[in-house]
Design a binder for these strands. Structure first.
Lengths: 208, 208
DNA sequence: GTCTATACACTGATAGAC
DNA sequence: GTCTATCAGTGTATAGAC
């Protein structure tokens, strides 16, 4: 992230993010991005040369919105229970503010795994080194207190993210199948679901 | 599904599925589908008129690979514990056989929610009527035996699917972040994870 | 830096011979 | 039903005036 960003560059990036996230790399049109940014199509090429380079910039910054946050939650030194509650709450908030971002990232990640790999080589070769040990330790502590199953803490992280993420990814399906398209009911359900997830996890972990 | 399908039609659908699932609607090229099917580009239009209609056929059949299976698992009259175990196992198998299908479906579902809605109007206005009550009953039974929290059974279903699905959706990321790209380690982890999920859920539900 | 005009490639779709 | 040839439309990218 260069902090030396023209106002125009910033407008382009915001517009590009909106369009790319909604339409995907191949579905997005340079013209639409230009319109959304309120500038001329040629300027996109002036600043970012090609569509692909523009996409890369957007994708990298989109990734940045998620992973660093995860890290900070994991590194705090509160109890595992609190850590779980905070993670569920905060991560849910981030996702609900950008409901289309996850499906965008996951989609393009599957199409183009090298992107994500290069991202981690660049930014966080750290999650394994930093987050997991912290998590592992907390899990062990708790496993000793209760007679809980001392499973791989990576499973715990995957469980949390999966439960939080899936309803957002599949929002249109779930709204339709479970609530006959009723938006209000769905929103209430999702709000209550946050505390359900925390309880569900803690319940399982502290099982005597 | 007409069972009156030409051999050529079937070849086209298979090829189209492969390409659409990998590249998405806008990323897929009619030429590539034709090549993959070993036929001429014009034949695609002869059989399916437009790209969009071809896509619809593929999408509908892709959806069909998931939801009916879910239903049958839910409708059996075994215990909730067994139901969970079977669901996790069978659903994991389906997903691992088609690792790219979920991200395809979820991506296009978010781009075009009307598709999924029309699908449910057509095929299963039933999940709510059939699966949920069956699930609800089983959950209640168990809640009475243990002193478990009598939460909304829809949460249980979302929890299961989320935990099963997420690592498959984010496979490249997780393989990289958790296993430094080591495929073998990842596969072992995923195999063990199946039973972990069942235990994790049952643990939480039967919490005393 | 910003705009207009345009080049160039590609893609979905159709017409028509066989 | 299957193929070849071709068209019209669209999209990225560049050249050049200001």
């Amino acid at each position: 992230m260069d902090s030396t960003l023209t106002e125009t560059e910033q407008k382009i990036l915001n517009a590009a993010k909106k369009v790319f996230v909604l339409k995907g790399m191949s579905g997005a049109r340079m013209q639409e991005i230009a319109n959304e940014a309120g500038i001329n199509k040629s300027l996109l090429h002036y600043y970012f040369r090609t569509k692909e380079k523009l996409f890369d910039s957007v994708f990298q910054s989109a990734l940045g919105e998620f992973f660093p946050k995860i890290r900070s939650y994991m590194l705090s030194d509160s109890s595992l229970e609190d850590k779980i509650k905070v993670f569920v709450t905060e991560y849910s908030k981030v996702l609900q503010e950008n409901p289309f971002l996850p499906s965008f990232i996951l989609g393009e990640v599957n199409r183009n795994p090298e992107h994500i790999i290069s991202y981690f080589k660049q930014h966080v070769g750290s999650i394994k080194d930093k987050n997991i040990p912290a998590f592992h330790q907390a899990t062990k502590e708790l496993a000793e207190k209760g007679s809980s199953s001392g499973f791989d803490p990576r499973n715990l992280l995957l469980n949390m993210i999966g439960m939080i993420l899936f309803p957002i990814l599949a929002r249109p399906v779930i709204k339709e199948v479970f609530f006959d398209g009723n938006n209000a009911e769905f929103e209430v359900f999702m709000k209550n679901r946050e505390s359900h997830i925390s309880e569900f996890i803690i319940n399982s972990i502290t099982k005597s």
